[in-house]
Computed example of a mutant assay.
Amino acid sequence: MSDLVTLSVEDHVALITLNRPEVRNALNFPAYDQLERHLKTASADPEVRCVIVTGTDPAFCSGDDVREIMAAPKPAVAPPPVVKHKPTPAAMAALDCEKPMIAAINGAAIGWGMELALFADIRIASEKARFAEMFIKRGLICDVGGFYRLPAIVGPAKAAELLFSGDIIDAAEALRIGLVSEVVAHEALLDRARAMAARIAVNPPLALRYMKEGLRRTAYGDPHEIGSWAIETIRLLMKTEDHREGVASFLEKRAPVFSGR
């Protein structure tokens, strides 16, 4: 299997890079699997003290690969029953990562790409970054990041605006509302992320682990229950006519017409 997501470690910093630039780093099922595996590897590696997540230019992550995931033909034989109450594995691998995580957002972070950015502890954006919780445009809801992290980061009202509208915001607006901590020139992004990771990585690993755990407990709480509810609801919505219309309109490059069914 090709490296759809890569992992490298240098000076106690793991760099995880989404590597499907031809589709703006959209995630298909193998890419999700590789992302989950690399996040778990970085979390378990005693040599890693900080993790950077980024994408190969021109995008950070444009979300699910619509053609391979949402518009894929249904199998001729019904799949086995899906186990209930299990959040998205890659999402939980990111949220359960014990090492501080920096998202170096080098371009579009759309749909699950924005979720991935939200899973990070610190977000640094290139001036070219764009953000959107675009699930509503496909007749779906967001994953655990939009419900669990976004309201705590930007406030409930601004989170509701982003989730209900699916609007795209630029890096300057993301900085204004506190979605990112800083915006830098595009060519300086990875160097800036590495510099911050180096400042973190010199600190004692056990204290870093518990500092992150303390922040998670006080700022966010437990993501497992909302993650389970979100994935079950997404499965339900994927059977609706509005979801099919959202996907078809995207592929046909036209405005959708939703019916409430």
Rank of each mutant, 00 (worst) to 15 (best):
A172K: 14
A90M: 13
D121Y: 10
R130Q: 11
E133A: 15
E98R: 08
P151I: 02
L190G: 01
D11S: 15
A90F: 11
E241L: 15
Y220D: 05
L27Y: 09
F119T: 07
R217M: 07
P46F: 02
E47T: 09
K40Y: 02
L251H: 02
F147I: 02
A14V: 00
L118P: 04
M196V: 14
N19M: 08
L190M: 15
I105K: 00
K212Y: 00
A108L: 07
H186G: 03
I177V: 09
L140K: 09
D143G: 13
I16P: 06
A103L: 09
L179N: 02
E98D: 14
R24N: 11
V144W: 02
A159S: 13
I169V: 14
A159F: 03
K86M: 15
V183I: 07
D121V: 00
A171M: 07
A132K: 07
P58A: 06
W229L: 15
F164C: 11
R20W: 07
Y148V: 00
R235T: 03
S43K: 09
I102Q: 10
F131C: 03
E187S: 14
D57I: 11
A109T: 01
S228F: 11
S249V: 04
V9S: 05
P73Q: 14
L15M: 09
E241K: 12
R49S: 11
R261C: 07
P100T: 06
F119H: 10
L39I: 12
M134I: 13
P75C: 02
V257C: 10
L179D: 04
I231Y: 09
L4S: 13
G113E: 08
I136R: 07
I141K: 00
L190N: 00
D167V: 13
D143N: 11
E252K: 09
V257W: 07
R130Y: 05
R192V: 12
N19A: 15
I153E: 04
H186D: 15
F258V: 01
A71Q: 02
D65E: 14
E47R: 13
S2K: 11
